[in-house]
């Protein structure tokens, strides 16, 4: 029983990290119908920038904010310079561009920071909390993960649901031509969508780094799991990304905890296949909104 609780708690925290990467994938997919294979690599870059800023001795939180700000900028710049030219081209063009960006960013990071495994500090203690007299596998840092990802999700939800910018973003994503006929500057909103997605990614990068080895490829596997989560949630639903992430995190935690960690990637694959067989449109997708 204690093992089960510990595995579950760990799975939730891990899953919420997948959620934040998946949220980025979903924001981009529903706005531009593109899968951003560089979502993890962009997060890696902003986290390495935070790492360098930390090295200057400015403290954790300024570095944290620098990473998020760099994410905002990076997402916008990537959309304007690389994605816009391939926006209305065959989908393979976008795949090549975002995949190329992944390789490019990891190469750059390797050149600047080296391909060695480093450690990245955590915002809070990673030691398990003590409940009553027993220690559980859930730390202050895990609480921070839960709070940070939920806060981000709520912010995105409020933005979409209750603000004019959010209304325009939804319109631009669902019906770009109709939106333009209503005076919506669709191009700008796509840039904003990429920028927000990259902020979600930057947050994920900062949350993953302390829990794994920190090297230019450290987000690669996370991206695979986040993709699983995003597909699970329907690829175009932010709420789906959140729930999909938690489900993926739990599934991987149980596979890892009971069957062995080396089986986790296969576990993700099985989960993906099962979902695609039972409910190909994902759990939360609005069928009318789905264009693939």
């Amino acid at each position: 029983m204690r093992l089960f609780v510990n595995i579950t708690l760990g799975g939730v925290a891990e899953g919420l990290i997948f959620s934040s990467v998946a949220l980025g994938l979903v924001l981009i997919f529903r706005a531009t119908n593109i899968i951003n294979f560089a979502q993890g690599a962009m997060a890696m870059l902003t986290t390495f920038i935070a790492f360098s800023v930390l090295g200057k001795g400015v403290g954790y939180w300024p570095a944290f904010l620098v990473a998020l700000a760099c994410g905002l900028l990076l997402g916008g710049v990537v959309q304007l310079t690389l994605v816009r030219p391939v926006q209305n081209k065959p989908p393979l063009n976008a795949v090549i561009v975002t995949f190329g960006l992944l390789i490019f960013l990891e190469g750059i990071a390797g050149a600047i920071w080296g391909n060695t495994n480093r450690g990245f500090p955590a915002a809070f203690s990673q030691k398990g909390l003590v409940v009553g007299k027993t220690a559980v596998a859930f730390s202050h840092f895990d609480i921070f993960i839960v709070v940070a990802v939920l806060a981000l999700s709520i912010l995105v939800g409020v933005l979409f649901r209750f603000t004019t910018v959010g209304l325009r973003m939804r319109a631009a994503a669902f019906a770009p031509e109709a939106a333009r006929l209503l005076g919506v500057r669709v191009g700008r909103l796509l840039t904003l969508g990429w920028a927000l997605a990259a902020v979600a990614g930057a947050l994920a990068g900062l949350l993953v780094a302390p829990t794994s080895v920190f090297s230019p490829g450290y987000m690669d596997l996370i991206l695979v799991y986040a993709f699983t989560a995003a597909v699970l949630g329907g690829l175009d639903s932010p709420l789906g990304a959140l729930v999909g992430g938690v489900i993926t995190g739990l599934a991987l935690a149980y596979v890892g905890g009971y069957l062995g960690g080396s089986l986790q990637p296969i576990g993700a694959l099985v989960l993906l296949i099962v979902v695609l067989m039972i409910r190909p449109e994902g759990i939360f997708s609005q069928p009318t909104a789905r264009r693939v």
Partner: peptide, 12 residues
């Protein structure tokens, strides 16, 4: 411009 077929945004 009211386009041919209306093009209301059905998701909204």
């Amino acid at each position: 411009h009211v386009p041919e077929g209306g093009l209301v945004i059905t998701e909204l």
